[in-house]
Amino acid sequence: MTWLVPVSLLLPVLLLPLARLSARTRRPERAARALAAAAVVTAACGTACLVLVAATLADDIPAVVAYSRQARSRGHILPEPIPDGVAIAVTLLLAFIGWRLAAELRRRRLVTSDLHAVGSARDWLLVVDWESPRAVAVPPRHGRRGHVLVTSGMLRLLDPRERAAVLAHERAHLSHRHYRTTALAAAAAAVNPLLRPVESAVWLLAERSADEDAARAVADRRLVAQTVAKVALAAHSDGHTLGFGGSSTVRRVEALVKPHAGRQRPGGAPDFGAVILAAASIAVAAAVLYEFVELFLAWLPTH
């Protein structure tokens, strides 16, 4: 079996340094979308290679066997077939991957349905009488528009300016469609668990992007940083991390208080290390797909 098989499954390793670098970028929205797209491409590449390995089970079909013998008799060199045991194991792995992906998609669908079932929003806002301090952007579903759900506990916790920051943050999630960006990263991680750190990085970047929008809306970065910390502490003490807040609060606060601490070059030029890592990932992915397309075509009859 070619060495590119394990390489295709380990491609996420190349994305991990890129995820760490992007966490401090000064352009979180752009980085979130790029990293999510890279995760999807990487997961798709690995899955495609597994599909092609599983497809070599077809080399037992009489037409394929006859073609292979005929090709060898003409002096054509064919790649060594992958053992059936390996191909069967890969087929089972693909079934497991499909189950994980379906479970992730179903979980997100159920969460969105539950949030919509809480009530109907007026314009874009729904206030519910819950003690727990929560705020979350509810994605659109089945023709119903997306909206912001905020609890009475959250409103009591904050002063008017802090409330404005929270609402601007959640509205930014809707306007940038972060529910799609994070869903793509989560789907990629469901396909390949090595992408879990990349999924976390995409989530952090989406939060930071919304923080930046909130800071522009209230014209006070320190107020937003203070609100992020305040809500995160309240959510932690209440045992919840849904929506505003979370385990990456320190990074978010630091990015708001020290907006120029990132590694991005002046003038918006990209970090060369990130460019090199991205190029390496694309090159390896292309090599993997080319290798297995050649393998697959070699074991199929041409007529």
Rank of each mutant, 00 (worst) to 15 (best):
residue 3 W to D: 06
residue 4 L to M: 07
residue 5 V to D: 00
residue 5 V to M: 12
residue 8 S to F: 01
residue 9 L to C: 03
residue 10 L to M: 09
residue 11 L to F: 03
residue 12 P to Y: 01
residue 17 P to F: 15
residue 20 R to M: 13
residue 21 L to P: 01
residue 22 S to K: 11
residue 25 T to C: 08
residue 29 E to A: 14
residue 34 A to W: 10
residue 35 L to R: 13
residue 39 A to Q: 05
residue 39 A to E: 07
residue 42 T to A: 10
residue 47 T to F: 11
residue 48 A to I: 05
residue 50 L to V: 02
residue 57 L to G: 14
residue 59 D to L: 11
residue 61 I to G: 09
residue 61 I to M: 11
residue 66 A to K: 11
residue 67 Y to A: 14
residue 68 S to E: 14
residue 76 H to E: 14
residue 77 I to L: 14
residue 90 V to S: 10
residue 91 T to W: 12
residue 95 A to L: 12
residue 97 I to S: 07
residue 97 I to L: 09
residue 97 I to T: 15
residue 99 W to V: 06
residue 105 L to H: 03
residue 109 R to A: 15
residue 111 V to S: 10
residue 115 L to W: 11
residue 121 A to H: 05
residue 121 A to L: 07
residue 128 V to F: 06
residue 134 R to P: 01
residue 143 G to F: 10
residue 147 H to E: 07
residue 149 L to I: 06
residue 152 S to E: 11
residue 153 G to E: 03
residue 156 R to P: 01
residue 159 D to V: 06
residue 160 P to Y: 02
residue 161 R to A: 14
residue 166 V to G: 03
residue 166 V to F: 02
residue 170 E to I: 05
residue 176 H to Y: 08
residue 181 T to D: 05
residue 185 A to P: 09
residue 190 A to C: 11
residue 203 W to Q: 09
residue 203 W to M: 06
residue 203 W to E: 09
residue 205 L to E: 04
residue 212 E to Q: 13
residue 212 E to C: 11
residue 213 D to H: 15
residue 213 D to E: 13
residue 215 A to P: 11
residue 219 A to K: 12
residue 220 D to F: 12
residue 222 R to M: 12
residue 229 A to F: 02
residue 232 A to G: 06
residue 235 A to I: 00
residue 237 S to K: 13
residue 238 D to S: 13
residue 239 G to I: 05
residue 244 F to A: 00
residue 255 A to L: 03
residue 256 L to T: 01
residue 258 K to F: 12
residue 259 P to Y: 03
residue 275 V to R: 15
residue 277 L to W: 13
residue 282 I to Q: 04
residue 284 V to R: 00
residue 285 A to V: 00
residue 288 V to F: 00
residue 289 L to P: 00
residue 290 Y to T: 10
residue 294 E to M: 11
residue 300 L to R: 15
residue 303 H to S: 14
